[in-house]
Amino acid sequence: MVRALLVDDHAVVRAGLRALLEASGRAEVVGEASSGEEAVRKARILEPDIVVMDLAMPGMDGVQATRRIAALDIETKVLVLTAHDEDECLLPALNAGADGFLNKSAADTDLMGAIEAVVRGHSYLPRRAAELIARQKKQRRGAGEEPEPLSDRERTVIELTARGFSAAEAGREMCLSRKTVEGYISRAKLKLGLANRRDIVRFALESGLLRPEAEE
């Protein structure tokens, strides 16, 4: 049973989401929040498996709240659920540490599947995600910007991921939590414009972090 915290400043939306999740029989709503500040506070106290996060809220918005939750030393995932255009919201949400992104128009059919995928450690992103990341990378190059350098830990998790380590296995290798490792992976992918594990392997080979098996 997935433990979920619902965050939206509209009570009617939270009620609808609660009914949807509880009807599935696969999720338990352990809390609700109507603001970003409340979401961070309840995430710290409840440590749910997942936070279903709206973006547009007064005060601390969903992007800021996601960043704060991602920085907590807990295993909680964040799935952004918004009615806003993904072209505008996707990259800021991912940069903040979101693990998945779903448009509210698809919530009635896809929400539970998105939650379960994210809780299992997978990213749940729209098909346009790779295109948007690639576009951001192209724009940076066109503007003459160098890619933001990876930190030592980001380079290590990229190397371990390319070698086939799961986030949990990489965490044990580095004495870090799985959540922390996944945060490093997400930030590294955004810095480099990578969309998936195949891109990570290619980058690791091209940069020398990983050598082809024939050379090892």
Rank of each mutant, 00 (worst) to 15 (best):
E37M: 11
A39W: 04
K42P: 04
R44E: 14
E47P: 06
E47D: 12
E47V: 15
P48M: 08
D49Q: 10
V51N: 03
V52E: 09
L55I: 14
M60H: 05
M60F: 04
D61Q: 06
Q64R: 09
T66P: 02
R67N: 05
A71H: 03
D73R: 12
E75Y: 07
T76K: 05
K77H: 09
L79G: 08
V80D: 03
L81S: 02
T82M: 00
D87I: 09
C89W: 11
L90C: 06
P92F: 01
A93P: 06
L94T: 04
A96I: 05
G97D: 07
F101P: 04
F101K: 09
L102D: 03
K104V: 05
K104P: 01
S105L: 12
S105Y: 06
A106C: 13
A106D: 13
A107C: 15
A107W: 08
D108A: 15
D108H: 13
D110H: 12
M112Y: 09
G113S: 07
G113R: 10
A114I: 08
A114K: 01
A114M: 05
A117K: 15
R120G: 11
G121I: 11
H122Y: 13
L125A: 00
P126Q: 01
R127W: 13
A129G: 00
A129F: 01
E131F: 14
I133E: 00
A134N: 07
K137C: 05
R140S: 06
R140K: 12
E145M: 10
E145N: 07
P149F: 00
P149D: 05
L150G: 02
E154R: 00
V157N: 02
V157A: 03
I158T: 04
I158V: 13
E159F: 07
